[in-house]
Amino acid sequence: MTDVEAAARQVMGWGESARRPGRDPVNLPMVRNWLEALGDASSAYAEEAPPAMAQVWTMGGLHHTRADDDPLGAMLAVLDEAGYTSIVATDCEQTYHRYLRYGEEVALAARLESVVGPKRTALGEGWFVTTRNIWYVGDEPVAEMMFRVLKFAPAPAEPPVEPLIRPVVNRDTAYFWEGTARGELRIQRCEACGELRHPPGPMCPSCNETKPGWLVASGLGEVYSYVVHHHPPVPGRTLPFVVALVELDEGVRLMAELDAPPDEVHIGLPVRIAFAAVDDELTMPVWRRR
């Protein structure tokens, strides 16, 4: 067992921490500040606070320090010591047993749920640390949160790779790349007959009109076929990688890299589009699992 695992076992043994009370009771001024900052115009919060504020009530504030029995703080210190000095949050799941009423006093307790690693990630080797927060009013649990962070040792800078091959863009295809830059997957649609088409062209093969338009596709589809590329090197890619031909829900096919471990890809895999900005002028579509 590694030192990290031993320490994790010890911190898990602490169980739930002492409850730490929030600074102020649930109150309308903070709610109104929060709604204003987030641009939320909902009328739902005259008597109760927005559920997504659960954590706000027990935030430590400007000069806060972690309690000694705070399991996340303790575990992060262990990992810092072991050389995993960087941190990124990966998941946050909040469950609201009920909404909080104004005037209620909220207290927070936390426990360590798991420490998993060391894992090789794109950021570097690290450990996934999962904690559970439980908010109480009196002895009643009112909300919970599973919170996961990756505590990692930053990977050494990768050797410079050749920039990826840039597409040729002309007036027939510009709409597509303008779309990716805006986070939209645009598919050519004939303004005359409505035929969808990808790859695009200036004249509709169905009606021969030269009125190409486009729609924004859902970005959802299934893997129709795919390749796991091992050799030779491809500019801008780290080997091996997956390229997938995806049949969109709209019925046309579109190829892009599939950001998924090769072993987990199969024909029929449900995917959705994502976008990766290369620079100010080029954003590539990328498939992700859904």
């Binding site: 739902a44 990966t90 946050c92």
Partner: peptide, 28 residues
Amino acid sequence: LTDTGLVQRFVTDWAGPAVRVKKIAIRL
């Protein structure tokens, strides 16, 4: 915390003030 709040706002803007939000699970 703002991400969670924005996700809540996005859904309640659409669903209206009468719905109750039970759970928000996000991946960052």
